[in-house]
Amino acid sequence: MALLEAKNITKSFGKTEVLKGISFSLNKGEVLSIIGSSGSGKTTLLRCLNFLELPDEGSITVGGKVLYDGSDATTLSDEAIRQNRLHFGLVFQNFNLFPQYTVLENVTLAPTLLKRGTPQEIEQTALRLLEQVGLSDKLGSYPHQLSGGQQQRVAIARALALRPEVLCFDEPTSALDPELTGEVLRVIRGLKDKDTTMIVVTHEMEFARCVADRVIYMADGVIEEMGTPEQVFGQPQSEKTKAFLRGAQDLF
């Protein structure tokens, strides 16, 4: 059975329909890449999965447990929403590190507040994660003392510290200078080897092609094309996908 199942998710802001029925599923350990032009609803989809927005319709199921069902009229309490969020992690485009905390404190803050172990255990986990993202030498630094790439790697460690079942990335390298994207993408690729289930929204086509198990191309709030990287990049069916991929290639 799939770890994550999203069914027919719709979301409107006022009169603009941003998501028009998104359905997909994701198995444990799989990496899903979502590509698509700006404004197609990718961020909104990730925000729905992380309960920063509530879908208007549709359902979200993780590990067989229905976290959200739009047809259920009862409104979720703040506490239920908070519990639901713990199934997911989200790495933002612009990092959103906590500026007043050191690198290490950024990673230990949430597990400490959520009492996810003794202080020693939490710190040990944090140290291991920061080593994994290559920042063992920056433990005491503050976010403003780091490069964008380093900040994003801290954000990844921070998200991993809560062991989310599905880790989402919203264009994790879009705010970075080109020479810094590599270090972040390498970290994400490293997570795949550790069987982390991930959804990565990205404009890095090469990355999507090589790392993703499945690719979704989104356009105007619908899934225009979905399949393995070979299918989506190699033999795209839809005209829109072909045009998008040509456009992405023209950049080079």
Partner: peptide
Amino acid sequence: GQYEAGYVLGLTKSQIFRKIILKQ
């Protein structure tokens, strides 16, 4: 973004205010 970073880490509103927002 500071609030949302707190939310996705499963923190409560009051934790976010006291531990993240207040000092800033």
